[in-house]
Nucleic acid binder design. Sequence first.
DNA 1: TGTATTTAAGACAATTTTGTCCCAAAACTA
DNA 2: TAGTTTTGGGACAAAATTGTCTTAAATACA
Lengths: 145, 145
Amino acid sequence: MRVLSKATVYGLRALVYMASERERTGYVSIGEIAEKLNISFHFLTKTFQTLTQHGILESYRGPNGGVALTKPAEQLFLTDIVHVLEGADFFDKCLLGLPGCGVEAPCPVHDFWKEAKRAMKEEFDITSLAELGEKVSDERFRLVA
Amino acid sequence: MRVLSKATVYGLRALVYMASERERTGYVSIGEIAEKLNISFHFLTKTFQTLTQHGILESYRGPNGGVALTKPAEQLFLTDIVHVLEGADFFDKCLLGLPGCGVEAPCPVHDFWKEAKRAMKEEFDITSLAELGEKVSDERFRLVA
DNA sequence: TGTATTTAAGACAATTTTGTCCCAAAACTA
DNA sequence: TAGTTTTGGGACAAAATTGTCTTAAATACA
């Protein structure tokens, strides 16, 4: 059951890593993150550019440059990231791929899937990068194989 | 939020269509299904071959041939189909893509995701092709755009 | 001013998924 | 037996995703 693209997975892991380094001030370099999380630097850079263009990150070039969250991690939720990286219709798709699936003309699994999406979105709405970052700082949780 | 590949989506829709034609006896031709559901005949054929090889369908060649469910639609559940088309580990994957994510070394969203997968699997376990086929026969639900 | 560091951006390749096509094999019909 | 229908299976193409690389632009610092 794969729900997120690799681009989104890498982006999320990287953001949580940043949130887990809470005490640090200033920018974190993409190279450091890529190395720590063992993911492709160039690939992550592209995902981060998307996040920067959509106001999740701000970036700064040159020595001691890098990226930083535009808001406190307490105010950035999974839904925000997923909306940017997967599209605004992320929680609004038919399980059977039918275009206008809805109350008008639902597919046979519409009701169940609607509820599953609602529960999922609810959790994504309240889960902040700060919460996940803390878990990682606490050691018992990991971001890398 | 895309959970199933197109191959699986097409396969599922086709199986539900077959279940919805309950009164019919004998084989249903793949060509008919593909036409009715407006999906690629060749693509569907490949998916159906997989289902045949795994005992979900039985096939018969020649005039009046086609495919048929090996068991009554009441005894075929979404989990069975998904296991064949998506793999046996379908309900066992980490949201962040980490290989051995589990109680030992969980990712920071492990607990939530575990519960979401459990709820999803529970529904897939109890939803039969018969149930979905009936909904489609009842007209209020559709399988095609 | 020149060099090193770091993100920005795009070209390009590799891989996976999706889709198309052709021919063989099986079965029926005349 | 010949011809038609239908699935089986593989080759192949197209598209999307993932991954790599190169160059440019911005910034700091000596």
